[in-house]
Design a protein around this nucleic acid. Sequence first.
DNA 1: GTGACTTATAGTCCGTGGTCTGATAAGCAA
DNA 2: TTGCTTATCAGACCACGGACTATAAGTCAC
Lengths: 72, 72
Amino acid sequence: MRKSDKIKVLFGQRVKKLRQQAGMSQETFADKCGLDRTYVSGIERGIRNPTLEVIEVIARGLEIELTHLFDF
Amino acid sequence: MRKSDKIKVLFGQRVKKLRQQAGMSQETFADKCGLDRTYVSGIERGIRNPTLEVIEVIARGLEIELTHLFDF
DNA sequence: GTGACTTATAGTCCGTGGTCTGATAAGCAA
DNA sequence: TTGCTTATCAGACCACGGACTATAAGTCAC
């Protein structure tokens, strides 16, 4: 794999922005998604590489369409 | 995790459709993406759960925008 | 000061993501 | 028939996804 990592950073920034717009903390958002608090933190910092199922759970937690998550 | 698996099936069908529209075999497409042949097969059948980086590689291999991949 | 809230970060652990080899089978052309 | 292409499938392997615990540090109110 070993790509440029840019995608993870972009995705993380997008999640963080949408979460903040929804007025949720990382922890309440993680709980809503059924994810771990520290894992969400890693995603927003562009360190983690979430799977398709996690990405879908995140979109559901943000109450948006999947395509909207990738409107960078 | 243990979700409904629907997302993986939907995603796989989408990839398969776009790949066929591009006139590529699974193997040539896998090579273009730098992925394994059998792994692409699993994705299209909705068995595999690809990561964000793989999803981006797939979009690049299909020469489309990421958002377009999720226009189910 | 103390306390509640929020986030970052390190570390461990188990299950799975992703690669590889190889076998199988169907379709089609020569 | 033979040969080539395509896709499915099994098994093994290593690296990493994702959960968890715990610490630390920042903000704000009191």
